[in-house]
Design a protein around this nucleic acid. Sequence first.
DNA 1: CATGAATGAGAATTCATTCAT
DNA 2: TATGAATGAATTCTCATTCAT
Lengths: 224, 224, 224, 224
Amino acid sequence: MAYKRSALMQERLADNRERIVRAARKLIGAGGLREASINAVAAQAGLSTGALYRYFPSKAELFVEVLNDAVRNEVAILDAIVDGEGSAAQRLRAAVRSFAERALEGPHLAYAFIAEPADAEVDAARILCRQQFGNVFKRVLREGIARGEFPAQALDVSAACIVGAYTEALVRPTATQTRRGAGDARLVAEIVEFCARAVGAPLDAGGSGKHHAKTQRTPKRKTA
Amino acid sequence: MAYKRSALMQERLADNRERIVRAARKLIGAGGLREASINAVAAQAGLSTGALYRYFPSKAELFVEVLNDAVRNEVAILDAIVDGEGSAAQRLRAAVRSFAERALEGPHLAYAFIAEPADAEVDAARILCRQQFGNVFKRVLREGIARGEFPAQALDVSAACIVGAYTEALVRPTATQTRRGAGDARLVAEIVEFCARAVGAPLDAGGSGKHHAKTQRTPKRKTA
Amino acid sequence: MAYKRSALMQERLADNRERIVRAARKLIGAGGLREASINAVAAQAGLSTGALYRYFPSKAELFVEVLNDAVRNEVAILDAIVDGEGSAAQRLRAAVRSFAERALEGPHLAYAFIAEPADAEVDAARILCRQQFGNVFKRVLREGIARGEFPAQALDVSAACIVGAYTEALVRPTATQTRRGAGDARLVAEIVEFCARAVGAPLDAGGSGKHHAKTQRTPKRKTA
Amino acid sequence: MAYKRSALMQERLADNRERIVRAARKLIGAGGLREASINAVAAQAGLSTGALYRYFPSKAELFVEVLNDAVRNEVAILDAIVDGEGSAAQRLRAAVRSFAERALEGPHLAYAFIAEPADAEVDAARILCRQQFGNVFKRVLREGIARGEFPAQALDVSAACIVGAYTEALVRPTATQTRRGAGDARLVAEIVEFCARAVGAPLDAGGSGKHHAKTQRTPKRKTA
DNA sequence: CATGAATGAGAATTCATTCAT
DNA sequence: TATGAATGAATTCTCATTCAT
């Protein structure tokens, strides 16, 4: 209290936490959880290993935060889409499209969080995160069924299948090739239609949710 | 020192290789990749660690073989179904059902091969294996589209989506609960229908491919 | 930059030093040396870690001071007893009793200073401190021998043995149980008699030094 | 089974365990528990750190073994003395003498095991060990009291005090000086008499248990 | 050829001490 | 001068791989 903590320092501190998370995200994105040792993360963040432990009590908790962070972001975007206007089918399509497009931008990260467990603790968090994704889809499915847009179906199974479907479709090419390109648009469109058909949505009359997609699509992550 | 390599010895060698793979599969099935250390695998196989390295140059290569083995097995079963009789839709349903049912029986093995951390080499193999699964579905999709049973769609995307869909739907509950039970039948049925709808298959008139499922379903793995 | 070093500041400095020592003592008493990290001590003292290093050049030196402090306190009490009135035997008994009683009240502190791991520097201080205790007993022994109350014996050996005897007798139960209780009075009495016999004191006729014990016993430490 | 394990190899294995224990004992003896890091012990034993874990599951368990080893040795010797012939007083004197003499030979080791805890697990073992020493003295005390040689007294307290007394008397000089010398005989004799008086033993008529001491005294540790 | 003991490079985590602000 | 964030060496333990026997 005697000495004022300079604004610069305050910033540095908040910064460091963010830097660590970002460093972890970057490393995980680049090489999977395997490459993200505490030492590597600290180095990438420009800190010592000890410093890292000032911000996170354990590697597992850091990873859980990275995961939750990424998911919170995604879920917020999906929520906005799903709670928006239009038919359930339109919103479902827009949600799938939106998620798929962003996943294509951060390939390895998506992969790591979907298919590359580490610790029991992190694993548990991952399960929860996927359920969060699932919940978004459950909402729009429930509504669509109530409105008569979709046939009756098990919400949880369909929701999980949707998450799995685009996950797999995106992860596979992603894992091999690194360059993003022309095929992406088609890929996304096909995934969207797959999911739409899967839930029994009527054929898309006029552009697969472009209306919503236009406003919501692909916000950049605040931090790279 | 000059051992004749008798037929018996040749057999012994082939035997050992098989024992190692089996041992690895058993350990992975029981406790995931984490439980399958080289020492544990060797012990389970009744061999020394050194001997194991006579058959496999590295842990990664052993795991790749275990993976390929399991997949070859699955793919053979799926092939038989897909190349069998009935409409494309029936065969697609039967294939999904068959795979899902078997995955539910050996949860940890499925989980390990889908979602557990491993080194890059094993990961790469994983991708290839999933492509193999995808290829099976591509065949039946192509046929169905040609026959006019399914609408036009990107084969590779749909195939990947199918693999991803049931993978996710199966892995998630598997990761949490260990006991198989009453819900399984419903789960499988829902996954099957999700996939059927997704590819635009006509509604199942009369029992979701029971015909084929009856003859093909759930062959036990030859070895435990 | 040019601060007058006011009397108030001087006091503040002395104060801080004392606060640090007290904080360390409290933490050690509560949880042993292991709980008394530099950060914890600083926090407990309401100072920054950096500030702590203004008063003590190292952890070891701080602990040595804590140790010396505690011992100085004890030795003062023992001195008063030993230099008091009554036969040498009475005073010896009273001293042993007094020490034992206080040790039972602050078990962890006693234990820490007797038996916890520390670096070489602290260890060395420990030895010196025990010698200080020993010196008190040497004085009363010397006097008792001169008066013919005790038989001839090696002063230093007997003194050390006394310190060791009650140390051991006290530390052992302390390490296992935490609650102080009914057995304590008996324990103390037995230790007193053991030491009395050991130095060849005549049988206690009438109450094992209660006279002195009454006036001297168990002054509270000034600070908690 | 196919390949016979050479006698030489067998020996090496048994040897290694012993070498590790010896290495730990040596390091502890030389510099206390502080100096006995896993790496240091392994190096001293001429092994890698990994090898050490083939023989001991943890550092704590290694230390407990070193401790138990040393104590088992001591207790066996004390048992033989205490269960030998002669008056209880003679045997008590002989036991104290025997222990004290051996402790003077391995100063730091004794110190480490008496006054230098490390781990909760090791600590617990130490308490038990001291109780084992105590038990030996309890036996001879009980017998002496029954025979009317010693006055009534609390066995456990007296036993603990004896252990503490010679411990302290031996440890202190030991911690400071390293050279053993002329004073040792006197030191031991004084400790013996202190303990004898302490339990109320009659004056030693003729040489402080030389009879027994002559036959039992100071067997060398089998391994250095 | 088989054995399995030994290797040794990491991995996560802790904490006394320092030093920019 | 006080602060407390940052340092980084040290610790215990793991396990894929090797190699003397």
